[in-house]
């Protein structure tokens, strides 16, 4: 029993560890700048991370099975240009459901192709999704002729840029800031992700598969189907992210979401999701996303230049994973 309690405390602490990193960063930035710890800025951080936050959800499913999905950034761009196309120009007046469903369908279809390649044709995930990364990005450029699509339907643009409870005074100035819609998307998406991964039999099977594929197969789990499905989920998330992206930047641009797959992977890894599969939680991934958001927001506020930010980000990711690896090793 004594051993059990020690172990439990250790587990809890190591899960909390990542939360402490987040709190530590918040305290650090708050000390360095008055502009950081305000309600509006905190909401802004969530708004900023929502786009790749949604990608991280799909990525976490893939990573827990022991795979990787490099194609999400490109799929976002592809579904974004399609969404933009179907709510601009001659399609300006179409109901919003059309661009949204087009984006989601394209994302899901790309994910399904990834899944087919990995699960049924035994192509290594790295290679399969790298092919998709190239193909989807290329398709986005071909579709738009490398020109951005502007003048989107205003209601569509409002999806990502709107606020709940925003009021204006008589002079037309913002009276109450309100809560960005994106915050709700972020919370809803993670709620769904958490339930799916941690409360369903499907989620249990994902962990079983990621921990030991052979043992999962011997235990009667349809490993091919499960492996296929996580790439579909990742693609679906990329599709959702696609129309949100088009809405947020009010345009369809084939070079948008460049490098988002790497941000998504690093956020998940910071949150304790292992690249070798079977280990990690959606809670951790969510904290990982927030850490990435807090870091870049804080650096923006302090006026650190973008290129230098990249270097700092690399250092922080390295340190986070280093700590994680060594805590794990000690527990062995």
């Amino acid at each position: 029993m004594k051993l059990a309690t020690i172990q439990q405390h250790k587990d809890k602490l190591s899960k909390l560890g990542i939360v402490f990193v987040l709190l530590g960063l918040i305290v650090l930035w708050s000390c360095l700048s008055d502009a950081f710890f305000t309600t509006n800025n905190l909401l802004l951080i969530i708004k900023q991370v929502t786009l790749y936050g949604i990608l991280v959800i799909g990525m976490t499913f893939v990573l827990v099975t022991g795979g990787i999905d490099l194609s999400v950034g490109s799929i976002v761009a592809l579904s974004a240009v399609f969404a933009a196309h179907y709510c601009s120009g001659e399609y300006l007046e179409l109901p919003l459901i059309v661009p949204i469903s087009v984006a989601v369908l394209i994302g899901t279809a790309c994910g399904a192709v990834n899944g087919l390649g990995v699960a049924f044709c035994n192509i290594p995930p790295f290679i399969m999704t790298m092919c998709m990364m190239l193909a989807a990005r290329g398709a986005a450029y071909v579709y738009t002729n490398a020109k951005a699509i502007f003048n989107l339907n205003e209601a569509f643009v409002n999806i990502s840029n709107g606020f709940l409870g925003r009021t204006f005074d008589a002079a037309g100035k913002v009276d109450q800031y309100g809560i960005p819609y994106m915050v709700f998307y972020f919370l809803a998406a993670f709620a769904i992700g958490i339930v799916l991964l941690h409360c369903t039999t499907y989620g249990r099977k994902i962990y079983a598969l990621g921990g030991n594929k052979e043992a999962a197969r011997y235990s009667g789990i349809n490993t091919r189907w499960i492996e296929f499905s996580v790439y579909v989920i990742s693609g679906l998330c990329a599709g959702i992210c696609g129309f949100l992206m088009a809405s947020r930047i009010s345009s369809g641009n084939a070079n948008s979401a460049d490098g988002y797959e790497m941000t998504a992977i690093s956020a998940a890894v910071i949150g304790g999701v292992s690249l070798s599969g079977g280990v990690g939680t959606m809670y951790g991934a969510m904290i990982g996303v927030l850490i990435v958001g807090v870091i870049s927001n804080g650096m923006d506020i302090l006026g650190i230049n973008t290129y230098f930010q990249q270097i700092l980000q690399a250092v922080i990711i390295f340190v986070a994973v280093y700590i994680d690896v060594h805590v794990n090793r000690k527990r062995k």
């Binding site: 249990r204 962990y207 079983a208 921990g211 030991n212 052979e214 043992a215 999962a216 079977g278």
Partner: peptide, 20 residues
């Protein structure tokens, strides 16, 4: 190789066959 998910808990391993 085919019996256990070593990174999983005892409960995860036990219940994997009866999840459904």
């Amino acid at each position: 190789r085919c019996g256990l998910n070593l990174s999983g808990s005892i409960r995860d391993n036990m219940c994997v066959t009866i999840l459904d």
